[in-house]
Design a protein around this nucleic acid. Structure first.
Lengths: 208, 208
DNA sequence: TGTACATCAGTGAACGCGCGTTCACTGATGTAC
DNA sequence: TGTACATCAGTGAACGCGCGTTCACTGATGTAC
């Protein structure tokens, strides 16, 4: 028999998740630095004091949201960078994966885009940490690619960071057209594809 | 004789500018959506009610800050894109200009990076508007460059947007190392140069 | 299985505080003659 | 130049409100025997 959580622990997790979910929803229309603890508990339907059983502050909750939002991205990153095939097809597949992720996790993406340069230091740092990890993962994957033969470490990391930033920019562009007609979303997709393709071309001729 | 402002108008402008300056300073450590009108007037040394003589709300003040911050960038953009010479030298000059701008206007740069995806809609829109104008300026300049022969309009705009985003990312990287030892700032400069160079290379081979 | 005690997630009252906004005001500046 | 009146940037008191945090509490869940 596996060790299940126990009623008390399970209920606690449920409340904690409800607080995270409510906060994420409230953060669609404001920044973390203006999010109130009472707002969050009100949305969940618990007493304000219950908040302290789970988080020290809204900044602390924000750090937890970073883990939630960017933790779920690791698998996607891996899928993208390990994808095989012709260059243009890989680009299209990557952009498509990003578009799908934005459609399924819009609030997470908005949160990261907003708080990456936001007003709460601990959250900014948590995001930078995770993005640095992504860049490292991407770098390792790039190093394995035959195209990268002869590349030095600094250049690989540079390209990895460029890809990560590009991924975030692309995600944020898709966010802006989430509710827009398909025609406009198509235009964003094509612009994103072209951007990525230009970077790929630069990559292919880097050592010329 | 030119028409000077009159004592009353001049004093009003001075107070208004003091409010903008105080707000910009306060925004180094928080987001606009949590900036209080009383905070700003307290920092300036006027009564809270004086605020309303100049702005309807802090969001309104934010829009004014966008004009101030991005208005001052137009000349820099023009200098960068109209610069002549060998590709690598142009890249270095551009990165250097960005670094200098960040050193002389750190608070403006931070404000734009923070509020570009921040929690106040009217400010986000004002920033997107100005960035779209930048992209258009850059596009026009790119079109004049012989390298762009054979490029279609969509691709020119794509590249212009890529440059504008890259400029902001670079500026934000310099912001993070403003207080760091010169060695680290040098590393950021070189990484930024490499990024821009890779994009240049992609540009040169776009029509291959 | 039953009992006695410990734990602890969530409660609810209370606090002092700073907020945005209103209002009637003051007094220096501007204008008309 | 002087006078009488209008304008309006900035004032200061007052308001109702929601905030974060404290505290002692309750009662369901967990544990030891």
């Amino acid at each position: 028999m596996s060790h299940t959580l126990g009623l008390r622990q399970a209920q606690k997790q449920k409340t904690r998740q409800a607080l995270l979910d409510a906060a994420l929803a409230l953060l669609e229309e404001q920044s973390l630095s203006s999010l109130g603890l009472r707002e969050v508990t009100r949305a969940v339907g618990v007493a304000p004091t219950a908040f302290y059983r789970h988080f020290r502050s809204t900044a602390d909750l924000g750090v937890a949201l970073v883990e939630e939002a960017l933790g779920s991205l690791h698998p996607m990153i891996r899928t993208i960078v390990s994808s095989a095939g012709e260059s243009d097809q890989r680009v299209e597949r990557a952009v498509d994966l990003i578009a799908r992720h934005v459609e399924t996790h819009p609030a997470h993406v908005r949160f990261i885009a907003r708080e990456r340069h936001g007003g709460v230091q601990s959250v900014r740092e948590a995001i930078q940490d995770q993005l640095a990890r992504f860049a490292d993962e991407v770098k390792v994957a790039l190093a394995k690619d035959p195209i990268s033969e002869g590349w030095n470490d600094d250049d690989l990391l540079m390209l990895a960071n460029l890809y990560v930033d590009q991924m975030l920019i692309t995600a944020s562009l898709f966010l802006d057209v989430l509710e827009a007609p398909q025609e406009e979303r198509r235009r964003v997709t094509q612009a994103a594809n072209r951007r990525m393709r230009l970077i790929s071309i630069g990559r292919e001729h880097w050592l010329d």
